[in-house]
Design a protein around this nucleic acid. Structure first.
Lengths: 216, 216
DNA sequence: ACCTGAACACCGTTCAAGT
DNA sequence: ACCTGAACACCGTTCAAGT
């Protein structure tokens, strides 16, 4: 076929196809040949639009970052920093949970792509506007990212086997009920996330009070 | 050579070689052929000791988990839960930082291996002993894992380019100084971790007070 | 039991050739 | 500019053969 009058591919089409392949079959299923087949072209065609396969995966990660709601940081409609941060963390985690297979790429990658930078920009700006010193605002963006990506990456409860006899008390004296976690993975992870988020925000509120007090 | 009188390989030798290869050249450098060459054998030999390459990498991750100090959870020498949790988190992160290239495997994997389970067992047991209800103790183990692995996985500061002109104010109104982060990656990440850990522990202390008060 | 080389079905990427 | 098939240097894994 050689070159068609109208391009068969576009970066967007490639990213969309890659994301759906990652979602349905996992990261390992994405090979350039397989992805190309999904798009009805041959493998090397992709290299007209991306320099490497890794860049395709980073673009997929960024497309997921782009789905995170940032409206709570609007400067026009300011909200208490704590509320904004909470809602953002929830939206952030929800976006990652919708595409769990790409999270390893997203969590690791330096986030130098547009949507990742927009996240950092929005949270930093809103925290500074709310009265946090810039250095603290940077830390808040970073530590929230740690917590949210960490929680989306590995299921904690998924680490346990649904088998009553799996954990020998001699080896693991306190894991007698651990097999029960396997049945309720999502509940356990959701509650741990909620507990951690509340703790994090409570702790930051304490620091905020100290900063405010010192400023007077 | 066929079969030698004394085995050339052992699971430990393989894991040690794999860990040092991961540390020095990264995850991508680990192929079965390359790893085997490092050990002076041929590729397929590894399959006498591990079922898949992934299992080798999981064993490497577990060997890193095994380096995390758990002595602060000793039932014989009980410490305040907050102190123990703090010291554990610091030791946990330090272990991961020594082997950053394996963290994606460690953070993602279900942690069904012995050292990973021992971590979960120790923190759960110590929290229950300290008076936390079991469900909360589970959450604490999970959320600490989220935060520590998240912080060890992706450098936040590493996501920024050391270039003053990199961030167009029209796109990212608040990232004017972001290029400065690139120069001080470790400091920025260390501070964000410290700030987050303090906030987390402060927040948990608040919850602990409420639980204690409700119990009376 | 534990190693070997050969083989299979894949990879990511390059490149000259086509329009 | 954008696609193709052929080719290169790799992969993970299986397996029969060797001791």
């Amino acid at each position: 076929m050689a070159r068609p009058r109208k391009p068969l591919l576009s970066t967007d089409r490639i990213v969309d196809a890659a994301r759906s392949l990652v979602d349905t079959e996992g990261l390992a299923a994405v090979s350039t040949r397989r992805l190309a087949a999904e798009l009805g072209v041959s493998g090397p065609s992709l290299y007209n639009h991306f320099r490497t396969k890794d860049q395709i995966l980073e673009a997929v990660a960024d497309s997921v970052s782009a789905q995170v709601d940032l409206s709570m940081f609007d400067a026009d409609d300011p909200r208490p920093w704590r509320t904004a941060l909470h809602d953002w963390a929830v939206s952030y985690r929800a976006a990652l949970r919708e595409h769990p297979n790409i999270v390893p790429v997203l969590a690791q990658g330096p986030g130098r792509r547009p949507a990742g930078l927009r996240l950092a920009d929005a949270v930093f700006g809103a925290m500074v506007d709310a009265g946090w010193p810039p250095a603290q605002a940077t830390s808040i963006g970073a530590l929230m990212r740690y917590f949210v990506t960490g929680s989306a990456l590995g299921s904690f409860a998924g680490g346990f086997v649904d088998d009553e006899t799996a954990y020998d008390p001699a080896d693991y004296p306190h894991l007698g009920q651990a097999h029960l976690l396997a049945e309720r993975q999502d509940v356990v992870d959701d509650r741990a996330f909620a507990t951690g988020l509340t703790a994090l925000l409570d702790g930051l509120a304490l620091q905020y009070e100290q900063i405010s007090a010192a400023a007077h």
